[in-house]
């Protein structure tokens, strides 16, 4: 005899259960409303900090580096997120004002089932922790314990067609809270792209968490791409739109400085940035840039085959 017969209750379909995320979000909303009512407007950033929610996920050791993760304070305090300003500490100072709920991602283009997906549904996908090296084009690096889901799991929900040769990611624009957007330092929204095989590679994840909690806003909440073998700017933050396309997308940095930032932008110690060497990196918070940079940021075994026969100097 089943439990159902004993209790006389119908099983609750998974879709009916309030996800922990949404549930906590309501509490956050209430807490925020209470604080606002009490005239504690200035308490908002602190609140956002407190409200980072636990997001337990088992570490996938096979896909994780054994390098020691960089201190959380550094990962969350030193960011390039130009929508919030050009300074490295600008995002940590002002990204808490970004609204990350409700949040949806529009998925379209060359797919069988174009749709809009809520962040709650993304967070119900099989999340796991991936400790990845993160190498910025500016020659500094970190090691970050992301929590996320392989991008191919999301792609499976919409079914890319044979015309889907590339994937284009578009980041959010919230001008009222983004000083960098208002200053028009760059033509926002931020756009990035991957070749379809790069996007579908198991190393490519959509990250929704960091250090066992939901992603801090300055790191690209609520959901961002992480492509660990490419320079950091390829990993677009705060994604609101994903398009599967036939032609190679023109990314924001390609439009800005095509001679310096190519579409592929694979980490490569042998191909210098026009203005600095990429042979070594500074593992923050080290003083010395004494860490040798590895081809494909150390992920060559997994991804080098994607570029077999390509001249990586030409396709930088």
């Amino acid at each position: 005899m089943s439990m159902r017969a004993l209790t006389g209750l119908k099983p609750i379909p998974p879709s009916e259960i309030t996800p922990r995320e949404v549930f906590l979000d309501r509490r956050r909303f209430l807490a925020g409303a209470t604080a606002a009512a009490a005239g504690l407007g200035t308490a908002a950033p602190a609140l956002a900090e407190e409200m980072a929610m636990k997001l337990p996920a088992a570490r996938n050791a096979a896909f994780s580096t054994t390098d020691a993760p960089t201190a959380k304070k550094i990962i969350t305090g030193y960011n390039n997120f130009y929508e919030f300003g050009m300074g490295k500490s600008d995002p940590a100072a002002s990204a808490s004002k970004m609204s990350v709920r409700p949040w949806t991602i529009e998925i379209g283009g060359a797919v069988e089932k174009p749709r809009t997906i809520g962040i709650e549904e993304v967070m119900r996908l099989p999340l796991e922790e991936r400790v990845y090296r993160f190498r910025c084009v500016e020659a500094w690096s970190m090691v970050a314990p992301w929590i996320g889901v392989e991008f191919n799991k999301l792609a499976a929900l919409v079914g890319p067609t044979s015309k889907a040769k590339y994937v284009r990611f578009t980041s959010v624009v919230q001008p009222s809270v983004m000083s960098g957007v208002r200053a028009e330092v760059i033509d926002f929204p931020y756009v990035e792209g991957l070749r379809i095989d790069e996007a579908m590679h198991p190393l490519t994840i959509l990250a929704v968490g960091l250090y066992g909690e939901t992603l801090p806003n300055q790191n690209g909440a609520p959901v961002r791409v992480i492509v660990p073998w490419k320079y950091g700017f390829k990993s677009a933050k705060s994604i609101v739109r994903i398009d599967f396309v036939e032609d190679q997308p023109r990314s924001t940095w390609m439009k800005l400085q095509p001679s310096e930032y190519g579409f592929y932008s694979n980490v490569n110690p042998a191909v210098d940035h026009p203005r600095w060497s990429q042979a070594r990196e500074r593992r923050l918070p080290d003083f010395f840039a004494s860490t040798p940079t590895l081809p494909f940021n150390g992920y060559a075994d997994q991804v080098a085959s994607l570029y077999a026969g390509m001249d990586l100097k030409k396709f930088f």
Binding site: G77, K88, S89, R282, L284, D286, F287, F288, A289
Partner: peptide, 10 residues
């Protein structure tokens, strides 16, 4: 050293 931020050398 923390006063020098995440990238003290920079």
């Amino acid at each position: 050293p923390e006063a020098l931020g995440a990238n003290p050398a920079e």
